[in-house]
Design a protein around this nucleic acid. Sequence first.
DNA 1: TTAGGGTTAG
Length: 560
Amino acid sequence: MATPSFSTATLPVLIHLLRGASDLASVAATHAKLFKAGIASTLASSNHLLAAYCRCGAMTSARGLFDGMQDPDVVFWTTLMSGYAASGRSREALSLLRAMELSGVQPNVVTLSTAASAYGKAGRVEDARAVFDGMDAPARNAVSWGAMLAAYTQNALGNEAIQLFAELRTNGRGLAPNQFMLSSVVSACAGVARLGIGKCVHGAALRLGQGNDEVIAVALVDMYSKCGCYEYSRKVFDRIDHPSLIPYTSIIVSAAKYGHGRWALALFSEMVDQGVQPNDVTLLGVLHACSHSGLVDTGLQLLRSMQSKYGIAPCPSHYTCAVDMLGRAGRLEEAFELAMEAQVEGNEALLLWNSLLSACRTHKRLDLATLAGQRVLEFNQDVASGLVLMSNAYASVGQTGNADAVRSGMRRRGIRKDPGCSWIEVKDTPYVFYAGAISCAGARTDEVLTLLDELECKMRERGYKGRLGRARVSDGHEDDGDEGKGVMVGVHSEILALGFGLLVLPKGMTIRVMKNLRMCCDCHEAFKLISVIVEREFVVRDLNRFHHFQMGSCSCSDYW
DNA sequence: TTAGGGTTAG
């Protein structure tokens, strides 16, 4: 039996050991020592032990310790709850909140912030907001606000995050935005491509002395990249001292999206030279860079050597990227063989075979398209895009009867794709356009249409043979889904957004258009020509990448 | 005196 003087002297030492422990073995060893000293069940020991078990993800041991506690206090409950949340077990975390209230222990601001965060991670944003709203305004602190902002951002609710950030400035009782809130809001701006707000938040971060925070910098790199400003993205990156894995990955992914394949590869070798180990996301970024720049053999070498060189085995997304890369380059037999070799299942298989199907359509290979199409239907979680591609594949080889049959089958079965839309930001407000529907331009609708007509005339004088985005879907047009309904459709959404932008944005300003689908070839040609006629630069973000149009050419060199 | 919030891909 230990003497009291032994235990008082030992406790701080053992607690110090627990605080530094990050693996189960050392926590268990310290637990044994505490037990031997007869001080394992003191309040201080229990709290530290529970936190230590949670920190190393040993939730079974944590739960055992918790269940052995008589009358756990609010801290004890909260520690266990955050342990579950951190191990990705949000549901268990949340059921603890109810159990705790039933046992008569009142949650405090830390408990509620933990719960809001767990609700966010479980995708239950409305519940998170209810918890946030349920807190007394004076009780809300920087962590509560940060948790709620993160919940919105992580669930792709960028505009709600931006709105909440604005509320912080008005109702936040003078609470200054910290690095957690700023990085979440910048990331929110990236998700919804709100460049204007993103720039304001960047300015705020600099004024608040957060300019050197690496996490904010990464969010900014990503935000500028997703808003079509690669140069800014690069500038922010260049100011980061000794960038670690995530900044390097972020800038490589940016370079990839803009078709700067060689830069991406140079950044990758720089990163490896600096001793920064890549992860699976980095390698996917490098593969994307190879794909978007036509560096097919370099990309294949990377795929084949990533296991031996970097210890990372290719996963379904690497295979999908490589299949896409071969497909773009017209190397369809190799793409098909690689797709077979990948042995992917479920939703990931759908993405892989969809990608091959898309390439078969582009290169008019109905034989392989049929094989890929069968695979797509086999993994039919989301059949819509596969069917649209299949229909377009038939149309591209002139089998319009089959193409129409697929389309009408979709209509009969009520299968729809997300409607195509494009949007543009004017004075920090986004304007969304759908194909053939220009109502968003409001009172300026007629002006936009007149402008587009004038442009089309000037384009014809320069030999333009397209139809300014007015196309029949079954023409073998891009996979527009509901942008048309198999009949003559209106002007494509990106053309409408461009027309509106030309009318309302100051002369000389680059026009940035975002689109939720891939850009079609006809619109791509139109943007190139219009950039000469009006002498302006345009940036279009489509589903996959960016196109920067300048004086009649595009940064993708027509390879995408 | 122990518990809470952020960034990269698809």
